[in-house]
């Protein structure tokens, strides 16, 4: 597994963690109608470790000292993944522009503070799509493309 794959797995892990936390909070606040409890300090330490320290440990090891971190194929894969991610941003922007009309009605209004909450996840999802696109392109072979 090279550095690009490892980065994509790391991004996907962070994305999955964020989505899981969002789903948990939405269920807790809007469905169970209860205020979530204050998370423990250990929880925040784990989150802080995952977001800051883990990439340095996870991405540090190279396959070989002579081998580059990325080559032309990796650049091509990353370029295609960026295109996928860019297209997904536009599609999601279109969906989030139309969806409120069907959810709250065409004459209703939504509070201004809700707009960042609607728009920011688009970029989070775009990050997830980028990572998935990278992993799919690498995963066309078996393990490490090796048969």
């Amino acid at each position: 597994m090279n550095k690009t794959q490892k980065s994509a797995i790391y991004c996907l892990s962070v994305f999955s963690l964020c989505i899981t936390m969002c789903i948990y909070l939405v269920i807790k606040i809007y469905i169970l109608k209860s205020v979530p409890g204050k998370p423990s300090s250990i929880f925040w330490m784990v989150i802080y470790f995952l977001v800051t320290a883990a990439p340095f440990i996870f991405l540090r090891k190279k396959q070989s000292p002579n081998e580059p971190d990325a080559d032309e194929r990796d650049d091509l894969i990353k370029k295609r993944a960026v295109v996928c991610s860019f297209v997904s941003v536009w599609v999601l922007l279109a969906i989030t522009s139309i969806a409120p009309r069907f959810i709250v009605g065409s004459e209703a209004s939504i509070p201004a503070w809700a707009l960042p909450l609607i728009n920011l996840p688009i970029f989070l999802i775009a990050m997830g799509i980028y990572s998935i696109a990278v992993l799919i392109q690498y995963g066309r072979g078996d393990k490490d493309g090796e048969s």
Partner: peptide, 28 residues
């Protein structure tokens, strides 16, 4: 791994080339 080191690319690229899944650039 040795070929990847000599050619300046990653081992995954060599695997993909051998399997015919990737056509390298002229330089590579």
């Amino acid at each position: 791994q040795d070929l990847a080191g000599k050619a300046g690319c990653t081992r995954q690229t060599i695997i993909a080339i051998e399997q015919g899944k990737y056509n390298p650039s002229l330089a590579l």
